[in-house]
Simulated scan of single mutants.
Amino acid sequence: MSTEGNPDRKVTRPRLGPDAREHIGAHLQIVYAEIEGQPIPDEQVDLLLALRRAERELSRKET
Rank of each mutant, 00 (worst) to 15 (best):
A26P: 04
H23W: 07
T12C: 11
A50E: 07
T63L: 07
Q38G: 02
E55Q: 07
V11Q: 11
V31S: 09
L48P: 01
S59G: 00
I35F: 07
G17A: 03
N6R: 14
D46L: 11
N6P: 12
H27Y: 03
E43F: 06
E55T: 02
P41L: 02
P41H: 05
V31R: 11
E4A: 14
H27S: 01
S2R: 08
I35V: 08
E62Y: 03
V45C: 02
T12N: 14
E4Y: 13
L47W: 12
A33G: 06
I40K: 03
D8E: 12
K10E: 13
H23D: 09
T12P: 04
S2I: 01
P7L: 15
T63D: 00
I24K: 07
V45P: 02
D46T: 06
Q29T: 13
R52L: 02
K10Q: 11
E43I: 14
R9K: 15
Q29K: 15
P39T: 07
V11C: 11
P7N: 07
P41W: 05
V45F: 02
R21C: 06
P41D: 08
Y32S: 13
A50Q: 10
D19C: 00
I30N: 09
L16C: 11
R56V: 01
Q38D: 01
N6S: 15
Q38K: 10
P7Y: 09
R15S: 11
E57I: 09
E43Q: 10
D8H: 14
Y32F: 14
D8P: 04
H23T: 10
L49P: 01
T3I: 15
D19P: 01
E36P: 02
L51T: 13
R9T: 10
V11R: 10
E22S: 12
A26R: 15
E43H: 12
P41G: 06
E62G: 00
Y32K: 13
Q29H: 12
G37D: 01
Q29S: 13
G37F: 03
R13N: 02
K10D: 09
R9P: 05
R56S: 00
L48W: 08
I40R: 05
L58E: 00
T3D: 14
A54Q: 07
Q38E: 10
I40M: 05
R15Q: 11
A33V: 08
A50T: 04
K10A: 15
E22K: 15
H27N: 06
L28Y: 13
A20H: 05
I24Q: 10
R9W: 14
I40Q: 02
V45Y: 05
P41K: 08
P14G: 03
R60D: 00
A50Y: 04
A50P: 04
E22T: 14
E57D: 08
N6I: 15
I35N: 01
A26V: 09
Q44M: 12
D19E: 09
E34P: 00
R21E: 05
I24M: 09
Q29M: 12
